[in-house]
Amino acid sequence: TYTFKVDNKDQAKKAAKWAKKLGLSFQIEKHGDTFKITVQ
């Protein structure tokens, strides 16, 4: 499981695209202005 934080929606979208490309499941949680992405 890999967790990282991004500062904006664009970065969150890029991370989601990357995870989908690799066939991984992911969750994006919004914490105020940051997004926490968990990829597994």
Rank of each mutant, 00 (worst) to 15 (best):
Thr1His: 10
Thr1Gly: 11
Thr1Val: 11
Tyr2Cys: 15
Tyr2Ile: 09
Tyr2Pro: 02
Tyr2Asn: 03
Tyr2Ala: 03
Thr3Lys: 04
Thr3His: 08
Phe4Glu: 01
Phe4Cys: 15
Phe4Arg: 01
Phe4Asn: 01
Lys5Asn: 14
Lys5Ile: 15
Lys5Tyr: 15
Lys5Met: 15
Lys5Trp: 15
Val6Phe: 10
Val6Arg: 02
Val6Met: 05
Asp7Trp: 13
Asp7Met: 12
Asp7Leu: 11
Asp7Lys: 14
Asp7Thr: 12
Asp7Val: 10
Asn8Ile: 03
Asn8Asp: 07
Asn8Met: 03
Lys9His: 09
Lys9Pro: 10
Asp10Val: 12
Asp10Leu: 14
Asp10Glu: 14
Asp10Gln: 13
Asp10Ile: 13
Gln11Trp: 06
Gln11Val: 07
Ala12Met: 09
Ala12Gly: 03
Ala12Asp: 00
Ala12Phe: 04
Lys13Cys: 15
Lys13Met: 12
Lys13Asn: 09
Lys14Pro: 01
Lys14Glu: 07
Ala15Ile: 15
Ala15Ser: 03
Ala15Arg: 04
Ala16Pro: 00
Ala16Leu: 10
Ala16Glu: 08
Ala16Trp: 10
Ala16Val: 12
Ala16Gly: 06
Ala16Thr: 06
Lys17Met: 12
Lys17Trp: 11
Trp18Ser: 02
Trp18Lys: 04
Trp18Leu: 05
Ala19Asn: 01
Lys20Leu: 10
Lys20Glu: 07
Lys20Trp: 08
Lys20Ser: 08
Lys20Ala: 10
Lys21Trp: 09
Lys21Tyr: 07
Lys21Leu: 08
Lys21Ala: 11
Lys21Arg: 12
Leu22Ala: 08
Leu22Pro: 00
Leu22Val: 06
Leu22Glu: 04
Gly23Trp: 02
Gly23Thr: 02
Gly23Glu: 03
Leu24Ile: 05
Leu24Thr: 01
Leu24Val: 04
Leu24Lys: 04
Leu24Asp: 00
Ser25Met: 10
Ser25Glu: 09
Ser25Gly: 06
Ser25Phe: 10
Ser25Val: 11
Phe26Ser: 03
Phe26Met: 07
Phe26Trp: 06
Gln27Gly: 04
Gln27Pro: 00
Gln27Phe: 13
Ile28Tyr: 04
Ile28Leu: 06
Glu29Asp: 07
Glu29Thr: 12
Glu29Phe: 07
Glu29Lys: 08
Lys30Trp: 05
Lys30Thr: 07
Lys30Pro: 08
Lys30Asn: 06
Lys30Gly: 05
Lys30Gln: 12
Lys30Ile: 08
His31Arg: 08
His31Pro: 01
His31Val: 14
His31Phe: 12
His31Thr: 13
Gly32Lys: 06
Asp33His: 08
Asp33Met: 08
Asp33Arg: 08
Asp33Gln: 08
Asp33Tyr: 06
Thr34Val: 14
Thr34Glu: 11
Thr34His: 15
Thr34Asn: 09
Phe35Cys: 06
Phe35Lys: 00
Phe35Tyr: 14
Phe35Glu: 00
Phe35His: 02
Phe35Leu: 04
Lys36Val: 15
Lys36Ala: 10
Lys36Met: 15
Lys36Arg: 12
Lys36Pro: 00
Lys36Leu: 15
Lys36Asn: 08
Ile37Trp: 01
Ile37Ala: 02
Ile37Gln: 00
Thr38Ala: 04
Thr38Asp: 02
Thr38Ile: 10
Val39Pro: 00
Gln40Tyr: 15
Gln40Leu: 11
